[in-house]
Design a protein around this nucleic acid. Structure first.
Length: 351
DNA sequence: CGACTTTGACCCGCGC
DNA sequence: GCGCGGGTCAAAGTCG
C-alpha cells in the first residue's frame, strides 16, 4: 500500500484545507452493552441526542476565504452551544439496586463525569482549534465502548477521534509505525476499510482508514486509544511527542492520537527537504492559539498538546523570525495576510 | 530474516 | 435462531 507523509494531506488546493469537520459525540450506552460505532454512529446520525451533528457537517466551520482574525477566532456561538451541549443519555447514573452497587456506580458516575468534563474541555478546545484554522470538516472527539469481555465485564472506554482529510493516498504517515491487521469491505461504499495497529509493544492504539464514498478524495481516519510511548519519529530528538502530549483529552480517560500538531512538525521538516515540491503551495493557514482564550492550566493534555506543539508555528510578530530563519515556510504555513506582512517586513529590511 | 501486507476465516453483537 | 455487518485473527505471501 502506498504510504504518504502528512505533507500529502496538507497539499490541497487553495481554498481547501486539511479538513476536520464538526465534532461528533458518541453517546454512552446506558445498558453498558457494546456498541461498535460505524461511520453513521460517529456522525451521530440516527441517534436521538441533541442537535444533529450531521447538520454541523454540512456547514464549514469557517468560510474558506475568511481567515479568522484573533478577534474573530472565537468559536462561533452557534457551534459552541451545540458542541458544549452534552447528549442527555451518557452516564446518567440514576438507577441502582444495592448499596454496594450503588457505591460502585457512584464511583463510576464520578469517573464518567470527570471524563465528560475532560471531553467537554477537549471539545471546546478542539472547536477553538477548528475555528482558528479554517478547518472545514472535523468530526470526532468521543469514546468508543469496547465490547465487555467475559473475563472482564468492566466496561472499557476507548477514546476515539476521527477526522477527514483530503488525500490521494489512504494511509498517512503520522510519525507512528502502524501495522495493518485487517481490511474489510464497507457496506454501501466501494472503498474498503483498513485496520491498523500501532506496532509498538504494549501500545494498543488502533486506527481505521477508509475513503469516503461520497467524496473519494476524502480519507476518513479514526484513531482509537492512547499511545503509551513517544512518537518514534523524532529526528534529531528535537520534538518528541510525549505520550501525554500525543494524546487527546486524556486527563480522565486518555485520548486518541491527534495528527495535526505533529503534521506541522513534519511539514516543517519536509518543507526543508522538499522545498521545490512545496513551492506555491498554500496550506494550513492561521494557527493562532490565543493564550488568553485557551486555558493553560488545564489538566487536559489536549490543551498542552496544542500549546506546546502548535505554538511553534504560530505566526506572530515574534515568530516571523522563525519564518525568516528557515526561509522556506512562508508559502507554506503562513496565511496570505501573514505572508504579505512578512514580505513587507523583508522589504523594509532591505531598505 | 524480520517487518509488513494480504486475505479468508472466525467471533460477536444486533436486528428481525 | 438466523443472517448481516463490523472487527479481529492468523497463516501465507511479499519486500527490502
Amino acid at each position: 500500500m502506498a504510504n504518504s507523509t502528512f505533507s500529502d494531506q496538507v497539499m490541497v488546493p487553495a481554498g481547501f484545507s486539511t479538513s476536520l469537520s464538526g465534532i461528533y459525540d458518541m453517546p454512552c450506552d446506558e445498558k453498558g452493552s457494546s456498541s461498535s460505532l460505524g461511520f453513521m454512529d460517529m456522525l451521530g446520525i440516527g441517534q436521538d441526542f441533541g442537535p444533529s451533528w450531521f447538520d454541523l457537517l454540512q456547514t464549514p466551520l469557517t468560510p474558506p476565504q475568511a481567515l479568522p482574525s484573533p478577534a474573530s477566532s472565537a468559536v462561533p456561538e452557534s457551534m459552541t452551544s451545540e458542541v458544549v451541549n452534552t447528549p442527555a443519555t451518557p452516564n446518567s447514573c440514576s438507577i441502582s439496586s444495592s448499596s454496594t452497587e450503588a457505591a460502585n456506580e457512584e464511583n463510576q458516575c464520578k469517573a464518567a463525569e470527570e471524563e465528560d468534563q475532560d471531553q467537554e474541555k477537549a471539545k471546546k478546545q478542539f472547536m477553538q482549534y477548528c475555528s482558528n484554522n479554517e478547518v472545514l470538516t472535523c468530526f470526532g472527539v468521543g469514546f468508543r465502548q469496547l465490547k465487555p469481555k467475559k473475563k472482564n465485564p468492566k466496561r472499557q472506554r476507548e477514546p476515539r477521534f476521527a477526522f477527514m482529510t483530503k488525500s490521494e493516498v489512504d494511509h498517512l504517515d503520522d510519525g507512528y509505525r502502524w501495522r495493518k491487521y485487517g481490511q474489510k469491505a464497507v457496506k454501501n461504499s466501494p472503498f474498503p476499510r483498513s485496520y491498523y495497529r500501532c506496532t509498538t509493544a504494549a501500545c494498543g492504539v488502533k486506527k481505521r482508514v477508509e475513503r469516503s464514498s461520497d467524496d473519494p478524495s476524502t480519507v476518513v481516519t479514526t484513531y482509537e486509544g492512547t499511545h503509551t510511548h513517544p512518537c518514534p519519529v523524532t529526528p534529531r530528538g528535537s520534538i518528541g511527542m510525549l505520550p501525554e502530549a500525543a494524546s487527546f483529552g486524556g486527563g480522565g480517560g486518555g485520548g486518541a492520537s491527534f495528527l495535526i500538531p505533529q503534521a506541522h512538525y513534519q511539514v516543517q521538516q519536509q518543507q526543508q527537504q522538499l522545498q521545490p515540491y512545496f513551492h506555491n503551495q498554500t496550506v494550513v493557514p492561521s494557527f493562532d492559539f490565543n493564550s488568553t482564550t485557551t486555558s493553560t492550566n488545564s489538566s487536559s493534555p489536549y490543551t498542552n498538546l496544542f500549546l506546546q506543539q502548535e505554538r511553534r508555528f504560530v505566526p506572530s510578530p515574534s515568530s516571523s523570525t522563525l519564518f525568516r530563519d528557515h526561509g522556506l515556510l512562508q508559502d507554506m504555513v503562513a496565511p496570505p495576510q501573514m505572508r504579505k506582512e512578512m514580505k513587507e517586513e523583508q522589504l523594509d529590511q532591505k531598505v
